[in-house]
């Protein structure tokens, strides 16, 4: 379970960043007092246009960034006060993250297993299970740099799941992937849900959201615009499809601000 309460994050701007953003302010507020909950056995969609604060929010949840204000509780652990303990419960998969090209999948998975404190036996056992599931045996000893995008994505999945996390964070995991590779991710998300894990999922592809998610949070300019179940979202829908409804909510907010 993830409980986010009054979460804010501001970044200090250096001279070059101020120039690039055309501002004289010393800091920028990327996430502004957001609160929502993600429940076990459910997939929670985090949506928002580019620059809305999704990645910053997910980076705070995965404890890469420290919040400026607010609390994050992950499986009853305060992730702000004890990020190391919280990380043991989190699996983080992002579409933009790279892999160590000079290592083999076997070496990489063993490395991350060790970093998560998983015993050698458990690493071998889980590795075998994941390799079977993702059909990875053929390329387990090839250098990652020589693998195809699809194979690399399978390695990323394996790395994310090697410590069997209870909370899994997906940040645009299918961006830039072909349909077959993306399907592996979709299947993984379904499996996580079926295993009772808490899943938070950020994507630009509304079809995936519609297919997978049980709850939805829309953020824009760092603030929460909408937060409810997918059922409720569909019920209040004023437009013919999910994409149009998302655009409408964001657009209405813009109009309100103006």
């Amino acid at each position: 379970m993830i409980q986010i309460s009054h979460l804010s994050k501001s970044f200090t701007l250096n001279r070059q960043q101020k120039k690039e953003l055309g501002t004289t302010q010393n800091s920028v507020l990327a996430v502004d007092d957001i609160s929502f909950e993600c429940l076990p056995g459910r997939v929670h969609a985090l949506l928002g246009p580019n620059g809305a604060g999704k990645t910053t929010t997910l980076r705070m949840l995965s404890t890469i960034f420290k919040p400026t204000r607010g609390t994050i509780i992950i499986d009853n652990i305060d992730a702000v006060k004890d990020p190391q303990e919280a990380r043991k419960h989190i699996g983080f998969l992002t579409g933009s993250a790279g892999l160590y090209a000079r290592l083999t999948p076997n070496e990489l998975i063993a490395y991350f297993g060790e970093l998560y404190g998983v015993s050698r036996n458990d690493i071998e056992m889980r590795k075998k299970k994941l390799y079977d599931l993702l059909d990875m045996h053929d390329f387990q000893n090839k250098r990652i740099g020589k693998l195809s995008t699809g194979m690399k994505q399978k390695v990323s999945i394996c790395r994310t799941m090697i410590h069997d996390p209870q909370v899994v964070i997906f940040d645009e995991p299918t961006s830039g992937l072909d349909v077959i590779t993306a399907e592996n991710i979709i299947q993984l998300i379904r499996d996580c849900k079926n295993q009772g894990k808490t899943v938070i999922f950020s994507s630009h592809i509304m079809g995936e959201v519609d297919l997978l998610c049980d709850d939805i949070t829309i953020i824009h300019k760092g603030k929460v615009l909408y937060n409810d179940t997918m059922e409720a979202f569909r019920a209040q829908q004023q437009t013919p499809n999910l994409t149009a409804e998302f655009i409408r909510i964001v657009h209405d907010q813009k109009t309100e601000v103006q």
Binding site: T63, I64, Q84, S96, G98, Y116
Partner: peptide, 14 residues
């Protein structure tokens, strides 16, 4: 540059 640091920082290693 290769965006591998992000995943490394999500591990429970100080």
């Amino acid at each position: 540059e290769r965006s591998t640091i992000e995943t490394l920082l999500t591990t429970p290693v100080p």
